[in-house]
């Protein structure tokens, strides 16, 4: 880990809906370092996927709208690039793995041809060479009989195999950053173990990964650093061990407590529900569910404060939680 690879600054994305303007991502800022796996964790609707999609300007507009923000990569702001310039980055330098490979792959094209297309579009290889490379990559992904598989349509492959094809597609252009949005959520545990083995292999090639997930277990296993999002905001940032040992935000702490573990024990449930993005509570957005909330939390929104040691927390009491 060294210099920042991608720097996201003050990102704010809203959606215009019939019920009003929904703020999905509110003043989010963070950096992805070189050669690290950064986790972005949170529950449905917290804005983690919108954050990830915004990096490559993949938010459909309308209804989505970028209100503010910059994504600095190699000295340029990706959010102000022309379509043409952006296309040179997408897939090529920063690529993405989506949750559901069945909808992300084209159902009408053979997987080998889909992989080869990525190489052709970015001018990395001629037609023959591209097909050969596509096959080679399928082999690297641990797919038995890559030649046969490259001629298969996505529906002929299992979920795990499809996700391997997606990963091959994301990897084969040798990107600097892979954004993986819930890459194993649709898969079984033993299959996702295979996929994570693959992803950790990829790290050795000095690729950074931004891993979006709702699963704290996955975060523990794969990430170097973690960002926790709640209701459109980053509430905590920490190296992975610190996050699990001494969470510096009550939401993180409650979330960790409510995770069932194999070791059994009494299960804990956070009271209340995630607030609607149309109607966030005043002050801290977690205040109505927080056991530690006091008057100030209901009036003022706590800023994301630096705690040193690579840690940040958006809680007035953060310093008391961290020794």
């Amino acid at each position: 880990m060294s210099a920042p690879l991608v720097d996201i600054q003050d990102l704010k994305v809203v959606f215009d809906t019939d019920d009003g303007v929904v703020t999905a991502v509110d003043s989010v800022g963070f950096s992805v370092m070189e050669n690290e796996v950064l986790g972005l964790v949170g529950e449905s609707g917290c804005g983690k996927s919108v954050t990830a999609m915004s990096i490559l300007s993949l938010i459909p507009s309308p209804p989505g709208r970028l209100v503010s923000g910059k994504v600095i990569y190699q000295g340029r702001d990706l959010l102000s690039l022309s379509r043409e310039k952006l296309r040179q980055v997408r897939g090529n330098r920063i690529s993405m793995i989506f949750q559901d490979p069945m909808t992300a792959l084209s159902p009408l094209h053979r997987v080998g041809a889909q992989l080869a297309e990525a190489l052709l579009v970015h001018g990395r290889a001629g037609k023959k060479e591209a097909m050969a490379q596509a096959e080679a990559w399928l082999g690297k992904m641990g797919i038995p009989d890559p030649k046969e598989t490259s001629l298969a349509y996505p529906y002929e492959l299992s979920g795990g195999m499809q996700q391997r094809v997606m990963i091959a597609m994301a990897m084969m252009l040798d990107p600097h950053l892979i954004i993986a949005d819930e890459p194993t959520t649709a898969l079984d545990v033993t299959t996702s173990a295979q996929i994570f083995e693959l992803l950790s292999e990829m790290r050795k090639d000095k690729t950074s990964i931004l891993l979006i997930t709702h699963d704290l277990g996955v975060i523990w296993e794969t990430c170097d650093r973690v960002l926790v999002m709640y209701a459109g905001k980053i509430v905590e940032q920490a190296p992975v061990k610190d996050l699990f040992n001494t969470p510096a935000h009550p939401y993180t702490r409650e979330l960790l407590k409510s995770m069932p573990t194999i070791d059994g024990g009494e299960l804990y449930a956070i009271s209340g529900q995630v607030p609607s993005a149309l109607n966030f509570p005043a002050g801290c957005r977690f205040n109505d569910r927080c056991p530690d909330a006091f008057d100030r939390c209901r009036r003022e929104q706590p800023p994301l404060m630096d705690l040193g040691g690579g840690r940040r927390s958006a809680c007035f009491l953060a310093k008391e939680f961290v020794p």
């Binding site: 699963d215 277990g217 523990w220 699990f244 194999i262």
Partner: peptide
């Protein structure tokens, strides 16, 4: 079991 992440 070995495929299940165990935080901590």
């Amino acid at each position: 079991l070995s495929a299940v992440p165990r935080p901590g």
